[in-house]
């Protein structure tokens, strides 16, 4: 329960004080995502240097899960290469769909050790309809990055 509360506080912190919310002046990549079921909206903007995301903005409106997920994502991907980002996204995806923490590749004894704040979203697994909310910034990011080339 204490852990759940910790997770809740992390989610609410990102929801109330989203990181990297300020739109970029001249983004190299940009994509908008919507979840038509609940009206969640997320815009992802990227500044690239070669294969590396050197700056990022995530803004939108919607529930605490979609918006905090976007904020956490922005922290997790800034400064990373496409390959690194794809690895994080894969870990995030398996966390959201796994049976339990161990299956998700997380370390139950050390919360946050693998995916940082993003691990706070793992409780969403219990609410399948809301996994889409958590995933929205990630699918939007994928679209912004476009196919590898």
């Amino acid at each position: 329960m204490a852990l759940e509360e910790l997770y809740r506080d992390v989610i609410l912190d990102h929801y109330r004080n989203p990181r990297h919310r300020q739109p970029l002046e001249a983004p190299d990549r940009r994509a908008e995502g919507v979840n038509p079921l609940c009206g969640d909206e997320v815009t992802v903007e990227l500044k690239m240097e070669g294969d590396r995301v050197v700056d990022v903005a995530v803004h939108g409106q919607g529930c605490s899960i979609s918006q905090s997920s976007g904020s956490m994502m922005s922290e997790a991907i800034k400064g990373k290469t496409r390959a690194e980002i794809e690895a994080i996204a894969a870990k995030f995806h398996s966390m959201m769909t796994a049976e339990d923490e161990t299956a998700a590749g997380l370390d139950p004894s050390r919360p946050g050790a693998v995916l940082g704040d993003l691990e706070a979203l793992q409780g969403v697994r219990r609410y399948p309809v809301r996994i889409k909310c958590a995933a929205l910034p990630w699918t939007t990011l994928e679209e912004a990055l476009g196919p590898a080339g």
């Binding site: 609940c38 919607g62 529930c63 605490s64 899960i65 609410y127 809301r130």
Partner: peptide, 18 residues
């Protein structure tokens, strides 16, 4: 967001639709 409301309500055992 109503989905956030419904999730917190669920933690109290209250089942509503959002």
């Amino acid at each position: 967001h109503p989905h956030d409301l419904a999730t917190i309500l669920d933690q109290h055992g209250v089942a509503v639709r959002a």
